[in-house]
Amino acid sequence: MTSDASGANPVDQPGAGVEPLRYSAFTHDPAGGNPAGIVLDASGLDAAAMLAVAARIGYSETAFVTGRDDAARRFKVRYFSPLDEVAFCGHATIALAVALAERLGPGELVLDTPAGEIAVATGVDDGGAVLATLTSVPARSRPASDAELDATLKALGWSADDLDPALPPHVAFAGNDHLVLAAASRARLADLDYDFDGLTEVMRRHAWTTVHLVWRESPEHFHARDPFPVGGVVEDPATGAAAAAFGGYLRALGLVTAPARITIRQGEDMGRPSDLLIDVDPESERTRVTGQAVPIG
C-alpha cells in the first residue's frame, strides 16, 4: 500500500475513501454553472475530515449532510470551501436539494445549516428537469463605509468612477456577508483582474464571503461576478448566497416596490454561464432563489 510524501497512508488521511457526488448548479449544462460537491452521509466525518474532502474536490463549496431524517425530509448540513467552513452556500444548497429530490422524489425539504433553517421546495418542470427554490434567512443590507470601499477598490484596481452612482455600495447579508459593488458599465465588469492577496486580506478583515460585483442591464436583469479568494477560489461562477443577499439589497434601497422576479446572469466571463432567479417581495425579509442542477460526469 502506497504512502503520500509525508509518509502517511492515504487511507488514514481525513476524509479518505469518501466519494462525493458532483453537481453543477444554476445550469442545465454540466459545462456551465457552479460545480459543488455533495456528501449525502457525512455523519462519520468531523470538521477536519470534511475540510480535507472539500480541499480534495477543489470546488468552491461542498455540502455535507451530517444528519438526516428522510421521512421528515429534514437534513443537517454543513458547507466547506477548500480553505474553511462557511455558514451558508446557495449553489451547494440548490445542488444538494436536486440530488435529494432525485432520490426521494420532489417536495419540500428543510435544511438545518449554521446560518439557520433553510426551506427548499423542489419540483419538476415541463422538460423533466428538477428545479429547487430555497428561501433565505432574513436578509438585510447597510451602506458600506468609506474605509471598506476604499480598501476594496484598491484591491480590485477600480476607481470610484467605475461605480454606478445609482446603486450605492452596501454590505448585504442573507446567511453571510457580501460587499455589493455596482459597475457603471458591462465592460468594467468584464475586465476583472484583481490583487488576490490584497482582496483576501480586506475580505478576511470584514468577514465577507464574496464581493458581489453587479451591472444592471435593466431593473429585472443583472449581470454578476463574485471574487472568492477567501475560499481559495479566484471567482465563483454562480453564487446563490450572494444572490439572496442581493435581494435584501434591492429591497433595502426601495428598488423593488412590488413582488418581482429578478434574473442574475453570472459566470459568463469565465466560460461557465449561470442563471439565477431571485424573487423579492418588499413585504418580506427573505429572498427566494431558484435554479436547477445537473450531475457532472
Score class of each variant (00 low, 15 high):
residue 94 I to D: 10
residue 90 G to M: 03
residue 108 E to R: 15
residue 91 H to E: 12
residue 107 G to D: 07
residue 87 A to E: 13
residue 102 E to T: 01
residue 94 I to E: 05
residue 114 P to N: 02
residue 108 E to Q: 14
residue 100 L to P: 06
residue 83 L to F: 04
residue 119 A to C: 07
residue 98 V to P: 01
residue 83 L to S: 08
residue 125 D to Y: 03
residue 98 V to C: 11
residue 103 R to N: 01
residue 83 L to D: 07
residue 92 A to F: 06
residue 111 L to Q: 11
residue 94 I to G: 07
residue 116 G to T: 02
residue 111 L to P: 05
residue 109 L to A: 02
residue 91 H to N: 12
residue 115 A to F: 12
residue 114 P to K: 02
residue 116 G to S: 04
residue 87 A to T: 14
residue 102 E to D: 13
residue 105 G to S: 02
residue 106 P to Q: 09
residue 103 R to K: 11
residue 83 L to I: 06
residue 99 A to Q: 14
residue 95 A to C: 07
residue 107 G to W: 14
residue 107 G to R: 09
residue 121 A to M: 06
residue 94 I to P: 02
residue 84 D to A: 15
residue 108 E to S: 13
residue 120 V to M: 00
residue 105 G to R: 05
residue 116 G to H: 05
residue 93 T to P: 03
residue 93 T to A: 08
residue 103 R to D: 12
residue 125 D to H: 03
residue 92 A to I: 11
residue 119 A to R: 15
residue 97 A to N: 06
residue 112 D to Y: 14
residue 119 A to P: 06
residue 89 C to Y: 13
residue 91 H to F: 14
residue 100 L to W: 02
residue 91 H to Y: 07
residue 122 T to M: 06
residue 99 A to L: 02
residue 101 A to G: 10
residue 108 E to C: 03
residue 96 L to D: 13
residue 121 A to E: 14
residue 91 H to C: 04
residue 99 A to E: 11
residue 88 F to R: 09
residue 94 I to M: 13
residue 121 A to D: 06
residue 123 G to K: 10
residue 119 A to K: 15
residue 96 L to M: 00
residue 82 P to G: 11
residue 113 T to D: 14
residue 90 G to A: 08
residue 90 G to T: 03
residue 87 A to Q: 09
residue 121 A to W: 10
residue 83 L to R: 15
residue 104 L to P: 05
residue 95 A to G: 07
residue 98 V to R: 10
residue 106 P to I: 15
residue 97 A to I: 04
residue 95 A to W: 00
residue 119 A to N: 05
residue 85 E to F: 12
residue 99 A to W: 03
residue 103 R to P: 00
residue 103 R to G: 00
residue 95 A to V: 05
residue 100 L to F: 12
residue 84 D to P: 04
residue 98 V to W: 01
residue 87 A to I: 00
residue 111 L to M: 15
residue 86 V to Q: 11
residue 110 V to G: 01
residue 92 A to S: 15
residue 83 L to G: 03
residue 91 H to D: 11
residue 83 L to A: 01
residue 114 P to D: 05
residue 120 V to G: 09
residue 102 E to R: 09
residue 105 G to K: 10
residue 123 G to S: 00
residue 109 L to W: 10
residue 109 L to G: 02
residue 113 T to R: 06
residue 117 E to C: 03
